[in-house]
Amino acid sequence: MVATTIRGRELHLGAVIGVARLIVCHPDQGPEQCTNPWAQRDAHHLVLADVQELALPVTATGALPAWKPTPDLVAQVFQQLPAFRP
């Protein structure tokens, strides 16, 4: 799903490839109720805003779902997006 959303290309695994603001998360209500391309059927729909792709992937390690980016990783990401701040 994500690979076809960003320039129709294969994406790196284990890397930050962009940032976005998560503005809404709600249970699946069917495609007629939520047409967001980030929705996962039979799960939750994520509604994203301010999506910014990075020019270069930034290597990231850690385990999901409790992964938290290190300050160094955040600095590397923001170096590519100087105008984007949380």
Rank of each mutant, 00 (worst) to 15 (best):
G30N: 12
T35S: 14
I23H: 04
V47I: 09
A43E: 12
G62M: 10
H26P: 00
P57G: 13
C25D: 04
C25P: 00
N36Y: 02
L13N: 08
H45C: 08
Q76H: 14
V47Y: 00
P57C: 15
I23P: 00
D42Q: 14
P71M: 03
V19T: 10
V19C: 09
A20V: 01
T59R: 15
D42S: 15
H44K: 08
L13D: 11
L54N: 05
T70G: 06
T61N: 06
V74M: 09
L73W: 03
V74K: 00
L64W: 12
L48F: 15
D50L: 09
C25E: 11
H12Q: 09
G14K: 04
V19Q: 05
A20M: 06
L22V: 11
L46P: 01
V24W: 00
H45M: 02
L73N: 03
T59P: 09
D28S: 02
D72W: 07
H45E: 02
Q40D: 11
W67Y: 15
W38A: 07
A20P: 00
L64F: 14
L54G: 05
L73M: 13
H12V: 12
R21W: 08
E53I: 05
T70I: 14
Q52H: 15
H26F: 04
L11Y: 01
I17N: 01
G30Q: 10
V58A: 12
L22P: 00
A43S: 15
T70C: 09
Q33C: 10
V58N: 08
D72K: 08
Q76M: 15
H26S: 01
I23E: 02
E53C: 06
T70Q: 10
L13V: 13
A60W: 09
A75K: 13
V47A: 01
D50A: 13
G62A: 06
W38L: 12
W38Y: 15
P27D: 10
R21E: 08
H45T: 06
L22E: 02
G18C: 08
A66C: 11
D72Q: 13
G62R: 06
N36E: 15
D72P: 02
W67A: 07
Q29D: 06
I23Q: 05
P71I: 04
A20Y: 04
C25S: 13
L48V: 08
L46E: 03
G62V: 10
D28C: 05
G18N: 05
V16D: 02
G18F: 04
V51P: 01
P37W: 03
H12S: 10
A15R: 04
T59C: 12
P65L: 04
V19E: 07
V47N: 00
V19S: 06
G30D: 14
H12I: 10
R21Q: 07
A75D: 15
P69K: 02
L22Y: 02
W67K: 07
A39L: 04
T35K: 09
P71G: 07
W67P: 10
P37E: 14
A75H: 13
G18V: 05
W38D: 02
V58L: 14
L11T: 07
Q33K: 15
L13Q: 11
A63V: 11
G30F: 08
H26A: 01
D42K: 13
V24R: 01
Q76P: 07
P71L: 03
A75Y: 15
P31Q: 13
R21H: 07
L54E: 03
